[in-house]
Design a protein around this nucleic acid. Structure first.
Lengths: 279, 279
DNA sequence: GCCATCTCTATACACCATAAGGATATCAGG
DNA sequence: CCTGATATCCTTATGGTGTATAGAGATGGC
């Protein structure tokens, strides 16, 4: 018989996420005073992940940062998976709510996207937290509330908007992932992007003669001018990813605008093209 | 002194990827006949990853499937990282080239996207191969050639098109990732999506009273009707992800269309709005 | 002062990638 | 056929992971 795996654990981890009383807060009884707290552990874990990446996040590493063993953490946190969930929701609190200032929804959406882009690059490990079976913490809902608040101004209905929000978030995550990974690779190997790319191109020419004939479209694509380095301090691939992100976002929002104006010009109040495209 | 990490390894792995002669093919000399080959190992590794996921892909597991120990593989393949690169490029060969049949670029792009969506769900581990420092194998270039060939018909120039392709691919990867992870989670835990979601919603209501007041936009968003189950066989979250993918793709292509027609209607031949949006 | 209760440590287990060394099979030259 | 070189493959070892288990030591209620 299957006991609906993780039911009890799920309750405890939701209680931890939402800081429900009863999450062993003001417990007074026999036994030594706890020297740690869930917050301390989460903070230490975030520090480890920020500094060394998700791959380096181990219970031992977190414990060490707090002067404890790995096992000491298990009195506060049920498992590593739960800890990651807590880290995820905790760090999402950095994102500001609001964006009511901006004039139109497009400006607000762009500003929001830029903010979350910077956030993802600040905490790249966030992108490795799975979105299937989402964490469902308060700060994730706060973020969702913000972006829905912005995009609601398009006049889209709930169903289509839900899909638009999903598409936007996953697009951002996918793009930021590459930028973050490229930064991480450079840091881990010590080889900057340009150097890596240069060496790889040379190898490619060596190993794949007749490249231009075999892949004419790719050859044509690469014939285009390199994008002007707007900012020399950010490394090559990350800059490229950022420009791709901005271009993609613009196209996406163009699509939304087209759908919205099509709906506005159409017969019905808010039905029509939008529903067709986004349903 | 830093010796430009991985220079020698890079040459060998590129030779393996592109099957350059000299990648120890027809070597005749003393020593026992090799019982395995790179291809056999790559095939076995793909089988493992398809069946059990990337997390279960260990050298031991691959060796076991071939009746060898883990260490036996290291005579054929330099390391696990190289093996994953080979797996990645090998499996990409499944994707068909072409799509010259379709009437317009939009139809072709949609068909291509559907194909690669199915491919990603067939081989979800592919989504865990980093796109920073890409693999640069022949089949990845073939895929790129296909999609560039399709989108070139929009009339966009090389620079903007490069960014559009990047945005499209990362959007697809981000979306497919969630769908794949949700499938994986269901398989690993044995709890289907609906059941998980139902239990989690109940817990959420318990642990976060006043949800609707605290997150009014989210509450409104979820008030929308659930999307009609077009296909009962695919599980809930995966279906949702698929619809989000299709909707997002449509919006993205709408944006491209808008940019293209803006450029066409404009003064210059192919400059104008497109360059603005996608530069 | 006893003792239940709690924190925290030590140890152990089953995994992981892979470095090092040795056993064995195979072939070239004598 | 024999010898020496060489390549495949296995065994073993190292240092890592998450976490189960058992126990040491501290604490407060009685």
């Amino acid at each position: 018989m299957v006991v609906f795996a993780g039911q009890g654990d799920a309750r405890r981890s939701m209680a931890l996420l939402w800081r429900t009383p009863g999450a062993q807060d003001t417990r007074t009884g026999p036994g030594p005073k706890p020297a740690l707290s869930v917050d301390m552990i989460v903070d230490a874990a975030i520090a480890v992940a920020d500094a060394e990446g998700m791959a380096a996040l181990s219970m031992r590493a977190v414990g060490e940062r707090l002067g404890r063993t790995a096992m000491a953490l298990y009195t506060y946190v049920p498992s590593k998976a739960e800890l990651v969930d807590l880290m995820y929701d905790h760090v999402l609190a950095e994102l500001p709510a609001g964006h009511e200032r901006e004039a139109g929804w497009r400006e607000a959406a762009t500003a929001w996207a830029e903010e979350i882009w910077a956030f993802y690059l600040r905490h790249p490990w966030v992108l490795q937290v799975s979105q299937a079976r989402p964490v469902l913490g308060p700060n994730e809902y706060a973020m969702l509330d913000t972006v829905v608040g912005i995009l609601r101004r398009t006049g889209l209905e709930a169903g289509p908007l839900r899909r638009l929000v999903g598409a936007l978030i996953h697009f951002m995550r996918g793009m930021a992932r590459t930028a973050a990974e490229s930064r991480q690779a450079a840091a881990a190997t010590g080889v900057p992007d340009e150097e890596w790319w240069f060496a790889r191109s040379a190898l490619l020419a060596e190993v794949a003669p007749g490249f231009a004939e075999r892949f004419p479209m790719v050859a044509w694509l690469e014939s285009g001018p390199a994008s002007p380095p707007e900012d020399q301090s950010t490394p090559y691939l990350e800059r490229e990813a950022r420009q791709t992100f901005q271009a993609g976002l613009a196209v996406l929002l163009d699509g939304v605008e087209a759908a919205v104006s099509r709906a506005g010009a159409g017969a019905g109040a808010s039905a029509g093209g939008v529903a067709e495209r986004l349903q």
